[in-house]
Design a protein around this nucleic acid. Structure first.
Lengths: 126, 126
DNA sequence: CACATTGTATGAAACTCTTCATACAATGAA
DNA sequence: TTCATTGTATGAAGAGTTTCATACAATGTG
């Protein structure tokens, strides 16, 4: 997994690049729920960046429920939480849809293309 | 064209978001070679950001040969236009799809529902 | 219990980004 | 020639990012 991480001089903050790469690897199934991630020190050394910068990326993913960390033990991909009740689910879905559309547009990408790409990725598992 | 520009709170510097959006609009043919871009002041007002921030985005595209600017006259898409890279676009859409799927699952939401909610939100504009 | 491993935290320094206010310079129309 | 329009520039202030050095705290193995 370490070899999949890299830092590019794109002007995008390093901790954001890292966060996005980890999220992408998880979404692509490269890291399954329960899988252990490289330690923060390993990533810092491999990418030649500061430990705190790596911690920053991991911390945000932990805050968002993507990762679970235990000091002395390591960082793991979180198991998906139990599905929300339908009413709450629909509300959260709608809010996340708005955010995701905004994020796609901010990246200059067509949100409709993004939605179709998501469905394409998910189809094989249906 | 102004309505196609957005700034999202993604942590990515504003001038980079703007630069990417303009680059893709040109790549998608929304802005043809020779077409005039919104003035830097118009963009600053529309997005409620500082003139210098817009200037920063335009300056980088000019440095890269994508735009041509003339003070007192305006900013135009360079002729010939920059090369289009559809493969890169598809890769970025796919990367964003994987990330969005992971983020949705971590939040306890069904990514397929999210994609459909996005398409529902976007339909009225078709 | 000791220790290696892994995560967490602090303050400071330097750099980057954005905003602000302001003003100058080139273009082209009238 | 004048003037409106558009781009270019400056310094400062505040917030954000990254690095550095260092050290503490929880975990689990032996």
């Amino acid at each position: 997994m370490l070899d999949r991480l890299h830092v590019a001089d794109t002007g995008i903050p390093i901790y954001i690049q890292l966060r996005e790469q980890l999220l992408r690897a998880i979404g692509a199934g490269v890291l399954a729920p329960g899988a252990q991630l490289p330690t923060m020190r390993q990533v810092a050394v491999a990418l030649k960046i500061d430990l705190n910068t790596v911690q920053r990326a991991y911390a945000e993913l932990e805050r968002d429920g993507v990762l679970v960390t235990t000091r002395g033990r390591g960082t793991f991909v979180a198991n998906p939480p139990p599905p929300l009740d339908p009413v709450r689910h629909d509300l959260e879905i709608d809010a996340l849809a708005a955010k995701t559309i905004a994020a796609a547009r901010a990246a200059g990408l067509d949100p409709a293309d993004l939605a179709r790409a998501m469905l394409t990725r998910l189809e094989p598992s249906i």
